[in-house]
């Protein structure tokens, strides 16, 4: 009963949100500045949703999201400028390229935990950037790849920000919907179970190593998709856009928005795209702004604005305590009495 009411309310809310997002560019058709901000929010929303599937749901820790983003962008750039392949084929191909790369990272590191895994994702991200930077003819090194043609649909060019807005909206909606569907299935439950307790997950028949690799591949697919979109949006890619900073920014957005919830990464992306625009005079200090935003969030609401699963345990302390085996506490009634 109650849950049905909640569901109805949610449906109404989502319908209103969809209408607003669809109508938004009509009001700003000529305002490229506003449209660009909105597009950036969507782009980061995809990258954040992707990262959240890893860090928020399977409990692994990826801080090298920029690397997968980079792979998507360069794949799209090379396919479009040299092989004339358009955005629609490129989107899934770029996603798959990122997934395949994630296997190179995931298979050898699946047994690593916490900081060790984080360090390897960091290193991986830098390796990707350095490969691109030193890729000679293939990636054109520091010059980057210009001249990526605009996206098109049935022969119509989608060159304007107005069009690209709708494409970004579509991709974001698709990413979020597919991720939410997968989370709400035995696969998503297995990922969350691994996050909560890997040993117990294994005892329940989940091959945890395979599922962690699976999670990484599924999630990074969307970073590759975002990279593809980015290439067609800016018509130019260069290794400079994929520094570790970029990965930190994405991570920061997810932390501010809240790990382990669907809405968190979207809200985090919106906030951390908009804040630097308001404080444009501080453009030099963009990263500091992010840092401050993260610190404020961690202080006021450690689980992030929408933080769902990961840290939402009501009384934070009590759950932690139970990590310690309470087994030793009830001293066994072994004493001879029964024997």
């Amino acid at each position: 009963m109650i849950s049905r009411l909640v569901r109805q309310e949610r449906t109404v809310f989502l319908a209103l949100l969809a209408t607003a997002l669809l109508a938004f560019p009509l009001a700003f058709r000529e305002n490229n500045y506003i449209l660009r901000i909105a597009i950036n929010i969507f782009l980061y929303a995809i990258l954040c949703t992707s990262l959240n599937m890893i860090n928020g749901y399977s409990g692994q820790f990826n801080i090298g999201q920029a690397g997968f983003y980079c792979i998507g962008a360069y794949t799209a750039a090379i396919l479009s400028t040299r092989h004339g392949i358009g955005i629609w084929i490129s989107l899934p191909v770029c996603g798959l390229m990122a997934s395949v790369a994630s296997l190179l990272l995931g298979i050898p590191t699946a047994r690593l935990k916490g900081i060790f895994l984080a360090m390897s994702t960091l290193g991986f991200s830098e390796i990707i950037r350095l490969i691109v930077l030193n890729g000679g003819e293939f990636t054109r090194g520091p010059m980057g790849i210009p001249g990526i043609p605009p996206a098109s649909l049935f022969g119509w060019e989608l060159g304007t920000n107005f069009h690209m807005y709708y494409l970004a909206l579509l991709l974001t909606a698709l990413t979020v919907l597919i991720c939410a569907n997968v989370l709400d299935s035995r696969i998503g439950r297995a990922w969350i179970a691994i996050r909560e307790d890997e040993l117990a997950a294994r005892a329940m028949g989940i091959p945890t190593v395979r599922y962690k690799i699976y999670n990484l591949a599924f999630s990074t697919f969307w970073a590759g998709v975002a990279g593809c979109y980015y290439a067609f949006l800016s018509n130019f890619v260069s290794a400079d856009s994929f520094h570790l900073d970029e990965g930190f920014v994405i991570l920061g957005m997810v932390l501010v928005g809240g790990l382990g919830s669907i809405a968190g990464p979207l809200i985090g992306a919106a906030i951390l795209v908009i804040i630097p625009e308001i404080f444009r005079f501080l453009a030099e200090y963009r990263l500091i702004l992010y840092g401050v935003a993260i610190l404020i969030t961690m202080h006021l609401r450690p689980q992030g604005i929408c933080g769902g699963g990961v840290m939402d345990t009501g009384d934070a302390g009590s759950v932690r305590d139970q990590d310690e085996p309470p087994d030793s506490e009830p001293e066994p009634a072994t004493g001879g009495d029964g024997t």
Partner: peptide, 17 residues
């Protein structure tokens, strides 16, 4: 070793994996 942030029914559902 329960899956702490999952509900009781979700915990059991994982068992069907």
């Amino acid at each position: 070793k329960l899956f702490k942030t999952m509900t009781a029914i979700e915990n059991v559902r994982v068992g069907f994996h």
